[in-house]
Design a protein around this nucleic acid. Structure first.
Lengths: 207, 207, 207, 207
DNA sequence: TATGAATGAGATTTCATTCAT
DNA sequence: CATGAATGAAATCTCATTCAT
């Protein structure tokens, strides 16, 4: 009847705890179901398999976060470098949208970022970085066109994508308080935007 | 007879490959010994256990790297902020020492950084970051004393330690060529030193 | 209300498909009910258990076939060997009755013959063979009485029963077309009848 | 040291019994190892997996039998139909070679023929029949050339291949005594050879 | 030095079946 | 008439580790 029967919730709850304690791989379905007062078979009624159980915890929060990122990137892609000059705070929007989404389900995020090794979600951060990379590559190429004698430095581009994502990862894994998180991330964004514009291009004649 | 008998070397060689392929956890000792033309028992003659085998691969390279870092940190700790002004390139020394050490045993480093989940070395990066943190905390505190009305922002301090270490991690995991690595890392060090001095302190009256 | 409610029919339909695909043992009741748009519980309303479901598919076709066989055997049992001489085609009646019955529910027959391993119907072919055996044993004994110095060769008797049944099994599993099936089986019947009369007896003094 | 350590033999012995009792699918590795006084893990030391264990029982006997069949077929392929006239007993050679090979490891053969459902060896009989088919197709085509207005009847060809193989299957599954087996099979071979020559061809103008 | 053998504990997964509602 | 939930027993397989020889 209900979409979230009592025991399904219990299962998810003890799964969260177990995954958090031991990580995906070493988490034991036996223990999860026992903690919920059920048998392993029950897990397979509610979820496809171990990965499905993990997914039931993280999928929705992940989707929300990805939607925000995707929307932001497609907006950012239209920036005009001819007139643009970076001022402190003018990239805060991403943080203001992302931080709440991240902290709304901090548990799930921590699972995803730190405990997903061995699961289908392993490498999710790298995928997000790659996605960031693709977006910023286009941006960087337009940037390069606006600056004679310069071309994109691929390594730096990738590194800054990496850095941007990891700034958020570090934030959520190290700062439990959402308000403080917002205060921490904003200057870092300024810092990264400055760096991006300064280091993303290299001289054309360098191989 | 020898301290490094033929079979010990064979074992280490195939262990390297297997750990690299599957990661510590999923690596199979049976496969490692079979690939070396031996049986599992042999591993337990030469090494204490699975972790011991992993250690035999990474301990020495790790020590070299840690020695360099330790030496550098103790030197850096004596910096005088009253007269100091950051100029591009004046922190290149760490890179010039570290990059060769890192690339000399890139295999071992990659194992340590990317494939050690489940082993005793899991979290080694975090430990190095913490160590970096401790060092830079002292530095930052002296820095704060030299600037009236300011105190250390703990989060930022930790984030910059994190960033510094991860710059090297990213480097070794993404740039196979040592020379290029050196070229990539130097501007990043400038970037980080600039950032450190700009963001590491916050106003004293903020809680 | 109805004896064959819509859902019962749906269930049988998807059961047919699943049993055909995977065989009795590996067929999943969950899948069967899901394919029918129902849940496993529904199966247990209409049928006793997995075997009951299988039976619901095959029982009726099987009964029809068995009735034909039984009738034929009891008729054949009255043959008079003193006057009998085998001519081509004089045993075609069985084929003419059996082939249509077999092909009318070819699905069910294939299930029974090829996919029933693990079910209560496993070994049905052997049972039919045994039944055939019993019938022909009586016939053979009367035959032996009519031929001095001869007795029934039990192995051969059984082998010819086996052969007769398997001729039909092979037919239905290998020839989808009913008309062609009839054309194939008739000469084989002649062949088998000839063989039966030639090989079914052995010299009395052989142990 | 030894190629057949005591426990490996024990394992094979209890596996034989269990497979014979329950068939491949329903046989329990737990029970097999327990009966041998060992743990399931031991099975995986000696054999790759359940199929490997089954293979350890049947592979060698199967090979012997297949070698005999293959050799016989390649010899038979050279028969000359222009001068050939079938006389009783002139095809006994196959039986004389095959029956001993079959009975030497009757256990393994029974496993293969009756208990292999679910294993990698499932369908082995069909494969042998197909192989027989291929051989006899060539023979039949040459036969057809020698008889004007006739062509090969594919169904009959396949049925006789089926019959030939199943004659041996029936033999080994129903007659425990090797000497009697030989006596049974010889007249059947005559019977089948006669039938083959009589029914394998059909009129050319039939579709 | 190294082997070959075996353990033992655990893992995930599957499934027919039951039963209150 | 059918659902949704859950059981419970079993299944195969993996693996680091141990140890007598």
């Amino acid at each position: 009847m209900n979409d979230n029967p009592e025991n399904r919730i219990k299962l998810i709850k003890s799964a969260k705890k177990e995954f958090m304690d031991k990580g995906f791989n070493k988490a034991s379905l036996r223990k999860i179901s026992a903690d919920a007062g059920l048998t392993t078979g029950a897990i397979y009624f509610f979820f496809k398999d171990k990965n499905g159980l993990f997914g039931a915890i993280v999928d929705e929060p992940l989707k929300k976060v990805m939607d925000i990122i995707t929307a932001h990137y497609s907006e950012e892609a239209s920036e005009d470098f001819n007139t643009y000059e970076h001022k402190s705070g003018d990239h805060d929007e991403l943080a203001e949208l992302l931080v709440p989404a991240l902290y709304e389900n901090r548990d799930a995020m921590l699972l995803l970022l730190e405990k997903s090794a061995g699961s289908d979600y392993e490498g999710i951060v790298d995928k997000i970085i790659d996605f960031t990379d693709e977006t910023y590559l286009k941006l960087a190429q337009r940037f390069a066109c606006a600056v004679p004698g310069k071309k994109v430095n691929d390594y730096m581009l990738h590194y800054f994508s990496h850095m941007q994502i990891n700034a958020f990862v570090h934030l959520i894994t190290h700062e439990p308080d959402e308000q403080k998180a917002l205060m921490h991330i904003k200057p870092l964004i300024d810092f990264m935007v400055d760096g991006w514009m300064k280091y993303i291009l290299e001289d054309k004649d360098i191989s």
